[in-house]
Every structure is written in structure tokens, then in C-alpha cells.
Design a binder for these strands. Structure first.
Lengths: 93, 93
DNA sequence: TAAACAAGTTTATTTTATAAACCAAAAATA
DNA sequence: TATTTTTGGTTTATAAAATAAACTTGTTTA
């Protein structure tokens, strides 16, 4: 059977990628809210996606508050689509 | 976002359940062949699915050789379907 | 009869996911 | 204005998982 991309086959990382597939970008607080993840866990998982080149993470200040914004990359988009294709073999759609 | 059943959100266990969704039963050697899993890993994962009541495992002798046969239960079937439904929220199908 | 094989199980190791603890700065409050 | 709380995270520690390696029991084969 086809392998499932282990980086994507994780609930939180998959949720993040799923969100980013449908918006231009999303910030840390927003993603945290939708996924219900703890900040620590989210921080770690965003790093992994970023290291893999699946997302781009931008850190800036808005006024005096820091803001971390994420956007999916072309590579990430491709990986996500391949993952979904592979998954279909498992869940027969 | 909906939670993904952690017991099913594992490549090998999902593969096993996927196989068992489509056949009356399947034996250890057959599942091992299709999934490409090692015997040890498969043994452990079958135990987990069995403990959760998602599959039934029957051990018998065919001639002089042992045979382990697995079949999905109603509970397992339901859990699989719910998992697939939850997953759709992530992969938008 | 010794070596290799079959069908698993058990145990140990490596990864992962996750949460807990922490940090710096800003905002709210007493 | 001093202190507490909140915001927006990161780092570190822990618990859980996946996986492989080693082992077992019995069988077949050379």
C-alpha cells in the first residue's frame, strides 16, 4: 500500500495544512483558535512544517504585539494533494 | 475541529481496518503481505484494534500451522465510518 | 540431526505528540 | 505607579506510539 506522508499524517499538522489550503495566510492565534491546540504544540508543529518547506512563517510586529503569520507553499500544496490521493487508497473515496 | 480517532489515525492500523472493511476476514500473513508491515509491528497493532473491540482475532491451527484470522466488528465498522467523516473536514471532500 | 523456515510474540529503542513550564512585553487594575 | 494579568509565543520535559530487533515454538528440508 502507498505510504502516507508522515509529516502530514498528524492531526494537528494536517489541520494546519487544511486551513492554509483555503486561505491566503493565517496567523498563530487564529490557527490556535480553530484547531484548539495548545500554543506549545502548535509552535512545535509549525516549525516542523516550516522546516519541511511546506509553509512559510513570517514574524513581525503589529504595533507593539508580535504576530506570526503562516502561508502554505507550492511544495506544501503538492504534498497535501499527494497525501489526500494516498489516503483515498485507505478510505476508498 | 473534530477529533480524529487516534486509534484509527495510524498508518498501519488504518490499513488493516481498510482491508477488513472490504473482506469477510483476512489472516495475519495476508495482511502482512499487503501492508508490508513487519510481523512484530503488525502483531502489536492487531492487539490494539482487538482490545478496542474493533476487530476479532481468531487463532487456530490449519494442519500443523498456526493461523491468525481477523475480521472487523460492527463497532469497528462504525468507528471507521466516523473516522472517515471526521477526516473529510480536514481534506474537504 | 542440524539448519532453515514459518508464524507469531515479547521486549527494547527511537520517534512523536503533547503538555507543562517558562519568557518578554504590553495591558489592565488596584 | 506598582503589581497583577494577559498576550503571544518558545523551550523543555514527559507520555505515548510506532517500529524494529530479538526471541519462541514448532515444522520442514537438506
Amino acid at each position: 500500500m502507498k505510504e502516507l506522508n508522515a509529516l502530514l499524517h498528524s492531526q494537528l499538522r494536517l489541520a494546519v495544512m487544511s486551513i492554509l489550503m483555503n486561505v491566503a495566510d493565517a496567523d498563530f492565534v487564529y490557527i490556535k483558535g480553530i484547531t484548539g491546540a495548545t500554543a506549545g504544540n502548535l509552535s512545535v508543529q509549525l516549525d516542523k512544517l516550516s522546516s519541511a518547506g511546506y509553509i512559510e512563517v513570517k514574524k513581525e510586529f503589529v504595533g507593539k504585539k508580535p504576530r506570526t503569520t503562516c502561508a502554505i507553499t507550492t511544495l506544501g500544496r503538492e504534498a497535501f494533494c499527494e497525501y489526500v490521493e494516498a489516503l483515498k487508497e485507505y478510505i476508498k473515496l
